[in-house]
């Protein structure tokens, strides 16, 4: 069978060697360009803001320099622990619960078509309700504690995860399902190795949408009623006419969102490495 080994050199391996062959200087230049592209627009915007606001007399738009000098005293004297961490804790709890619940229900509904036909109208109805309107209602039932805020986040963030998971599970290729059945994979293996992995591209899409919804709901739930948190602080500053401090809160919120989206991307890159590779190969990348 020697003739069989000839065509067997992996194209993947060929790609990797091509990358390694790049000289260090060229690679440095490539990273430099990427960094410039990444930070270019933020730098320009910050500079414009700085220049325009520097001489502005408007009380509501204090100079950026004032805002930045207020940043340290506002946040690093205990507010990180007192406000930011509780916010992040509630966000994490609500978001993770929403993803877990959405994936679990999505797998169930996606697996049984009859259940889907039964549940679909209800799902579409709940999805159509803008999540913030749930806050006053949930306040009535659950008070204004952490529980209410977590439930608010879950109630808004669960839908994209759920609906995308249903689509992902339904979209798993028939030959793969047949293979799993023929080789008699046990239910747990089928769930982990076939269903969840097969639906993972859609689950990740849903989870990404859910993340931005969860951040919005974290802030809004704190603006309604709270005694700590990022949203609570921003409202407090605004009511006390502490405008530079209010702006620092908004900037911090943006930074939190940015950091979370970077973490999300890193997770996505590992979970969906196979999917990217497959897509690239299908577009004619490697043969």
């Amino acid at each position: 069978m020697t003739s069989l080994t000839a065509p067997a050199a992996a194209p993947g391996a060929a790609r990797e060697t091509a990358c390694e062959a790049e000289p260090p200087a060229a690679r440095l230049a490539r990273y430099g360009r990427r960094l410039a592209v990444l930070l270019g627009l933020p730098a320009v915007l910050a500079a414009v803001w700085w220049i325009v606001s520097e001489r502005a007399e408007n009380f509501f738009f204090p100079p950026l320099s004032d805002i930045l000098s207020a940043f340290g005293p506002t946040w690093f004297d205990g507010r990180i622990a007192a406000d930011l961490l509780p916010s992040l804790g509630r966000l994490a709890a609500g978001y993770l619960l929403a993803v877990a619940l959405g994936v679990a229900l999505g797998v169930l509904i996606g697996t049984w078509p009859s259940l889907r036909a039964f549940a679909e109208p209800v799902l579409e109805f709940f999805r159509a309700i803008p999540p913030p309107v749930m806050v006053p209602i949930l306040m009535l039932f659950l008070g204004i504690d952490t529980l209410m805020k977590v439930v608010v986040i879950v109630s808004g963030a669960v839908w994209p995860v759920l609906l995308n998971t249903v689509e992902g599970v339904r979209g798993i290729d028939r030959p793969l399902r047949d293979t799993a059945r023929v080789y008699r994979l046990r239910p747990l293996t089928r769930l982990r190795t076939v269903v969840l992995r097969g639906a993972s591209p859609q689950i990740v899409t849903g989870a990404r949408q859910a993340l931005s919804i969860a951040i919005v709901l974290m802030v809004i739930s704190e603006m309604f009623a709270a005694n700590n948190g990022l949203g609570f602080s921003i409202v407090q500053f605004q009511r006390g006419f502490a405008l530079p401090e209010m702006w620092t809160g908004i900037i911090l919120l943006g930074l939190v969102g940015l950091a979370l989206s970077l973490i999300f991307r890193a997770v996505e890159a590992t979970v969906l490495a196979w999917y990217r590779g497959q897509r690239r190969a299908q577009r004619g990348g490697n043969r």
Binding site: A8, A10, G12, A13, G277, R287
Partner: peptide, 11 residues
């Protein structure tokens, strides 16, 4: 020689 490759990397 390709046990570590993914199916989509193969012909």
């Amino acid at each position: 020689d390709v046990p570590g490759s993914y199916p989509w990397q193969l012909s």
